[in-house]
Write a protein that binds this DNA or RNA. Sequence first.
DNA 1: ACCCAGGGTCATA
DNA 2: TATGACCATGGG
Length: 229
Amino acid sequence: MNVNEHTPALMEIYRRLETMHARRGWHWWPDADPFEVCVGAILVQNTAWSNVERALALLRGAGALDPGTMAALPPGRVEELVRPSGQYRQKARKLAAFLSLVEAQGSLERLLALPASDLRERLLATWGIGPETADAIVVYAARQPALVIDAYTQRIFSRLGVGPAHTTDYDEWQRFFVAALEPDRDLWARYHALVVMHAKHLCRKTRPRCGECLLADRCPGRDTGEGVP
DNA sequence: ACCCAGGGTCATA
DNA sequence: TATGACCATGGG
């Protein structure tokens, strides 16, 4: 199985994350509606999640959180609905591209039922969908194995001295984690979910996304607000 | 008045 | 291949 010299460190960090956050809002993407996950994965690109929630609320209010309905909307209407998520013209165009992929496969269910490697490949071939968005859709919408790497992951783990040094290359980081973790969809899904939860919820008050509380027992300066050099 | 956010694309050298 | 401009809203 996938185990190497980095496995103990990664699993120790995972356990600490779980201990710190499992009791908190565990209700993350894992339980959400597949199409909503796909839309959210696109809308959240370089955008605060709070803005995505506004857009999702507008889409829901318009009854547009469904592939067929959204595809039937006039283009300008989608722009209007996703506007709060920022880069709204780009995002509307990306959603349209994704919808044409769904159309090409017959249905969202068909698309998501493709083998993970095929699904990822087709997503990457779609305009506006890069590696992170593709992996998020594979693991949280299709519920198949994929390990999402994001800015949080790279910043936290490089800070901890864990992971490939001196690179921000997505595939390199992903290979590092995949080589060290058991190929377990739920483990991968939770690992990324916990990283995001940790980065947003705990580390924001001190230095942004520092990750130091993974080495200490809790976030340094969380209550005092004092920074660490 | 900045700065940034759970990226991705495109033009340039 | 590697860097930089660009997208654009809302919160700190």
